[in-house]
Design a protein around this nucleic acid. Structure first.
Lengths: 137, 137
DNA sequence: TGAACACTCTATTAAATCGATAGGAATAAA
DNA sequence: TTTATTCCTATCGATTTAATAGAGTGTTCA
């Protein structure tokens, strides 16, 4: 199940991407438009800023804005930052690999075999989608 | 992240499928061989029996056994029983559909658009894998 | 200069979920 | 009748998640 954090984060990103100008948008405006708890959204936008997706400006006329072009923001990186590992099991994760302590041989493990395929197919979807691809015109 | 329930359930199924004979195998034996807590495995096997994957026999010489051929057990059905919805978001689920209360128009929602693709690609993997496919020979 | 504005940061809470366990009931075999 | 095994339900503790609280920091502008 996708976490609300990821869901809201993605919605906020697409909202910012759909703005005609790259000017600061206030948290309150994003929260209102996307039906998100403002306080919760605050923390999400904060991590998106710290991880290099957003810039921010304080004070009057402040807010958040995209730093890169939407077409340069890959879903693989967004998902990894908001949701964590893409793989459903650590033993098939590219960026967060961890050995199972119960499994003596990965190559003979059915779960491993299946989840490797799942990872690959999901990864392909995320690699083929940038933020720009998700904006409906 | 895949739940332990699903992971253990899958391992138990493959263990049963890899038996040369379709005779009852005791929970304790499966648990030992797959390094699973026996008590936890009990409840998992119980749901697998109630959902038509396994048969059981009580008393001495009892245990669990596969009811169908491994090649007839699709991963789509196994995953849905053990893990629940395959979709990462209810609004793109085939079997567990639910409208998002915050989202006014699914067709314009970026999350919807992305997760629809994820669902389709994952579904294809599960549809292409039966229990028989996961057994290493 | 100061007041309003809007992001920043950390801590906390409430609810839900997960993994595991407990302990007896039911049933079958020897 | 004893022993072996599954069946069933309840519960527990830990973790995670979603959300909230509230004081702090920097900006703008009159």
């Amino acid at each position: 199940m996708l976490s609300k954090k990821t869901k809201y984060g993605l919605k906020a990103l697409t909202y910012l991407a759909s703005q005609s100008k790259r000017e600061p948008v206030q948290i309150s405006q994003i929260a209102r438009h996307e039906n998100i708890s403002q306080k919760f959204l605050e923390t999400i936008l904060l991590t998106l800023r710290k991880t290099g997706f957003l810039g921010s400006k304080k004070g009057k006329g402040g807010g958040y804005y995209l730093i890169k072009e939407p077409s340069e923001i890959l879903m693989t990186t967004v998902i990894r930052v908001l949701e964590g590992p893409i793989a459903m099991v650590p033993c098939v994760s590219l960026n967060f690999y961890e050995k199972c302590d119960d499994c003596p041989d990965e190559n003979k493990c059915a779960v491993h075999k299946l989840m490797l395929q799942v990872r690959d197919s999901v990864l392909e979807v995320y690699r083929n989608n940038t933020l720009a691809d998700l904006i409906s015109e």
